[in-house]
């Protein structure tokens, strides 16, 4: 079993963090993982993306050309990455911020009002956690509990208040479907 995931959105939406949390969670569940961020002349508000591979066997290429799963957090990323998704792949997109509709008919599409759900919890910036929760439920590749453990490693300097809010966002995503 190998799942290749691309997470994409604006810088500041927790794109890189989402990827690292997925990689940690995969490692905690004894899978082979790689995480690779887009790097270069990046800026806040610019686009960011990262590739994560989670596999039961050693990961060959950390470069993901055609992902199995896309987590898309903003409009430009939908345009850029939708064509690359594998046939029968899974597209999760942030319905709150993305107004256009995905075009493909050979994939599974799940619109998630990620920012709206995060705002209900009091913080738009934890929309990424909502998406990871949906991913865990829909694909079954990772346990909710492992994602909770992983986010606590990624955000180890955050307050307990923030960490439990992140947990709640993961749960809301998990029970969204």
């Amino acid at each position: 079993m190998t799942k290749e995931v691309i997470v994409a959105g604006f810088g500041g939406q927790g794109i890189v963090s989402s990827g690292i949390i997925l990689a940690y969670a995969g490692m905690f569940e004894d899978r082979h993982v790689t995480f690779f961020p887009s790097y270069g002349a990046e800026m806040r508000g610019g686009t960011a993306n990262c590739s994560v591979v989670i596999s039961s066997s050693p990961v060959a290429s950390p470069i993901v050309a055609e992902p199995d799963v896309l987590i898309i957090m903003n409009e430009p990323s939908l345009l850029r990455f939708e064509p690359r998704l594998k046939p029968n792949g899974l597209l999760l997109y942030n319905k709150t911020l993305i107004k256009s509709e995905p075009k493909r008919s050979d994939i599974t599409i799940i619109p998630v009002p990620a920012n709206a759900i995060a705002e209900e919890l009091g913080q738009g910036r934890i929309a990424n956690m909502v998406m990871l929760g949906v991913l865990a439920k829909k694909t079954g590749i990772l346990q909710l509990a492992t994602l909770k453990k992983a986010q606590r490693i990624r955000y180890k300097k955050a307050s307990e208040e923030q960490l439990s809010l992140n947990d709640q966002a993961l749960e809301r995503g998990y029970s969204f479907l």
């Binding site: 690292i20 990689a23 490692m27 082979h32 993982v33 790689t34 995480f35 690779f36 961020p37 790097y39 990961v59 950390p62 470069i63």
Partner: peptide, 10 residues
């Protein structure tokens, strides 16, 4: 190369 340096693995 830059890719090996920038990627994360266990």
């Amino acid at each position: 190369d830059g890719l090996l340096g920038q990627m994360m693995e266990p």
